[in-house]
Amino acid sequence: MAVVRVRGSLRKLTGDRAEHELEGATVVELLRTLELRHPEVSGWILDERGLIRRHINVFVNGERGDRTTAVASTDRVEVLPAITGG
């Protein structure tokens, strides 16, 4: 299973754990699995359209990815909030 790593508010909403072993063939499938396992995080990473929120970046094995990026069982996915705000 791929490892999804979250931090900050997302970590608190996912059982106060930074790393989650999840099943899914794409980034969005992994994130949906994360929501099923931790419903509190629903709406925080993906919006109602199923899109990754604009100021959240996803990296797969260190490479910038998007919701459709394919993920293998050995991959490592980082979910990073952008530094934003005035």
Binding site: E40, D47, E48, R49
Partner: peptide, 16 residues
């Protein structure tokens, strides 16, 4: 506590 249900219908073209 976060309130539930504050979102548009899923699968549409819009987001709250």
């Amino acid at each position: 506590l976060q309130a539930d249900g504050v979102a548009l219908p899923e699968g549409g073209d819009l987001a709250l």
